[in-house]
Amino acid sequence: MTVADRRVLSVNTALVQPMTIDGKQVMTAIRKQPVSSLPSPERIGVKLLGLNQDEQADPTVHGGLSKAVYAYPHEHYPFWQTVRSQAKAQAWDEPLPHGMLGENLTLTGLLEGDAWIGDVLKFPDCTLAISEPRHPCYKFAAVMGFNQAVKMMAQSGYCGFYLAVRVPGTIAAGESYELIPGAREVNIAELFKSDMRKK
């Protein structure tokens, strides 16, 4: 894997807003939208508790120092486009927009099996550290448009990973990042699989 393969395709944010799920109104910020993309690579501020213009509705499961930024591998997008199409949640030829998985950073070049707790992602103007896997909830199923979405994430292991902010700064789509190894004791894929077995 070369540094050129490790890139930010999109930076995505959302403010907390109401969403109706199973007839009940809940507050959520899962519906992320690109604020920095390859055609328009705006610089977005990265603070200790997350990105500028981004919020979390439930700080007990999202956000905080260890879960300030959520990254998702773009390599999994074809899988989700296929299963959403099969579930009739979207047309076969409809592309999945970046941020659809609720992620802040749509990345290339780093899958869960190669993402180790404590590894550092060094960007040109900020530094982030891999902290833990994402655990899907009912809001994820609602935004994906089909009830089996949580089960599909659990079975596939395509969970993405949270990042803690080591060095605040800014980030923009199109930037490459350097992966600096940490202790390499457990990776995201192993930890997610272990967590799912406990549920």
Rank of each mutant, 00 (worst) to 15 (best):
H135L: 15
H135S: 14
D114G: 05
L107E: 05
H135Y: 13
E112L: 04
T108C: 03
T106D: 02
G113F: 03
G109M: 04
S131L: 03
Y138Q: 11
L121M: 15
G118P: 13
C126K: 03
C137T: 04
N104S: 01
S131F: 09
T106C: 05
P124S: 11
A115C: 11
Y138K: 12
T108W: 00
T106N: 06
L111K: 01
W116R: 11
P133R: 07
W116H: 15
R134G: 03
L101N: 05
L107D: 00
F123P: 08
K139V: 15
E112F: 05
K122L: 06
T127R: 12
A115R: 01
D119Q: 07
Y138P: 03
L111E: 12
R134W: 09
K122E: 14
A115S: 09
L105Q: 00
T127L: 11
Y138S: 13
L101Y: 03
P124G: 12
H135F: 12
D119H: 02
S131I: 02
H135D: 14
W116P: 11
L128M: 11
W116G: 09
P124I: 10
L107F: 04
H135C: 10
I117H: 04
D114E: 15
D114R: 06
F123W: 13
V120W: 00
E103I: 01
P124F: 14
L107C: 00
L121T: 13
I130D: 08
G102T: 04
K139P: 11
P124M: 12
F123S: 04
P136V: 11
G102H: 02
L111V: 10
E132A: 15
K122C: 10
T108K: 00
V120M: 07
L121Q: 13
G113E: 14
K122H: 13
R134P: 02
I130L: 11
A129T: 15
S131G: 04
D119G: 05
L111G: 01
P124A: 15
L110P: 05
F123I: 10
L110D: 07
W116C: 12
D114A: 09
L107G: 07
L128I: 11
K122N: 10
L101P: 00
D119T: 03
I117P: 07
P124E: 13
C126Y: 07
L105K: 08
L121H: 14
I130E: 06
R134L: 04
T106W: 05
E103C: 02
P133K: 13
A115N: 01
E132F: 09
L101M: 09
G102N: 00
H135I: 15
A115H: 02
E112N: 05
W116Y: 15
L121K: 14
C126R: 00
P133D: 08
L105A: 02
R134H: 15
I117K: 10
L111A: 04
P136N: 08
L128Q: 06
E112D: 06
I130K: 09
H135R: 14
N104Q: 03
L128C: 12
L105P: 03
P124C: 14
S131P: 02
T127M: 09
R134T: 09
K139G: 09
E103R: 01
K139I: 15
K122F: 03
P136A: 15
P136W: 09
K139R: 14
I117T: 10
A115P: 11
Y138G: 05
L101I: 01
D114Q: 14
S131D: 00
C126F: 08
P136M: 08
I117E: 10
